[in-house]
Computed example of a mutant assay.
Amino acid sequence: MIGTSMGASGSSVDDSGATDKYYWHKKFMSRCPSGQLSLHEFKALLDLHSMNDEANQYVQQVFNMFDLNKDGFIDFTEYIAAISLVLRGRLDQKLKWCFKLYDANENGRIDKKEFLSIIKAIHAINCNSGMNPEEFTVKVFDKVNKNGDGELSLEEFIQGAESDQSFMDMITKILDLSNILKIIQNGRRQS
């Protein structure tokens, strides 16, 4: 299965030469002199312009997940907390975070519409022509929605991710923040 570096393409903060918070704080502050990253700045930093509505919604949801205190900004502490979770968190922590990302209406369940919306957004951002969002959604719900109610509970989501490799692979792509780390470290979008 997937180890603690899930989503980081085998890299970690230590692998990239950043062995302490001072280094990352210096890099973060050089990109965000105010110490706070707004949604607009987040999109600009990641070179995410002219996205469709689904991609915009996904980026907004990711931003909101990082904005722990819900003040409309990602500060350094929130940034480090997010990076630590994604790079070093346990699998169950990562899956719970991912579940919250999908659960747009925060009712503790993911319906097909919420799931499809995220998959379409990921598809749009990654320009991934190999994955048909509608077919993938149907496949996941057929395999993972054990009680057939058309919604995924956290338990079904975690069990499905642990038992279905294609579902786990998709979650791994969602949690891959290595490009974000490289952009903040190097100051430019990676190709």
Results as ranks from 00 to 15, higher is better:
136 F>K: 08
122 I>S: 12
125 I>Q: 06
118 I>D: 07
146 K>A: 14
118 I>N: 03
104 A>S: 11
144 V>N: 10
104 A>G: 03
154 L>W: 04
148 G>K: 09
117 S>H: 11
107 N>M: 01
155 E>C: 04
133 P>E: 09
112 K>P: 09
119 I>R: 05
100 K>P: 07
102 Y>L: 06
113 K>S: 05
101 L>F: 13
116 L>C: 10
93 Q>V: 00
153 S>V: 00
93 Q>H: 11
132 N>A: 07
107 N>I: 00
107 N>F: 08
124 A>T: 12
96 K>I: 12
106 E>P: 00
121 A>P: 07
113 K>W: 07
119 I>P: 03
121 A>K: 02
115 F>Y: 14
158 I>Q: 15
100 K>T: 09
114 E>C: 07
95 L>C: 10
136 F>Y: 13
99 F>M: 08
94 K>R: 15
100 K>V: 02
97 W>E: 12
112 K>G: 06
123 H>W: 03
135 E>T: 10
150 G>L: 04
97 W>T: 03
115 F>H: 15
103 D>Q: 00
108 G>Y: 14
133 P>Y: 11
146 K>Y: 00
149 D>F: 04
112 K>C: 01
139 K>H: 08
99 F>E: 04
98 C>A: 15
100 K>Q: 15
148 G>T: 00
120 K>P: 00
142 D>Y: 04
104 A>K: 11
123 H>E: 10
95 L>Q: 13
133 P>T: 11
127 C>E: 13
121 A>S: 13
131 M>P: 08
137 T>H: 05
134 E>F: 04
95 L>W: 13
112 K>E: 15
125 I>H: 13
109 R>C: 11
110 I>W: 07
136 F>A: 07
103 D>I: 02
129 S>T: 13
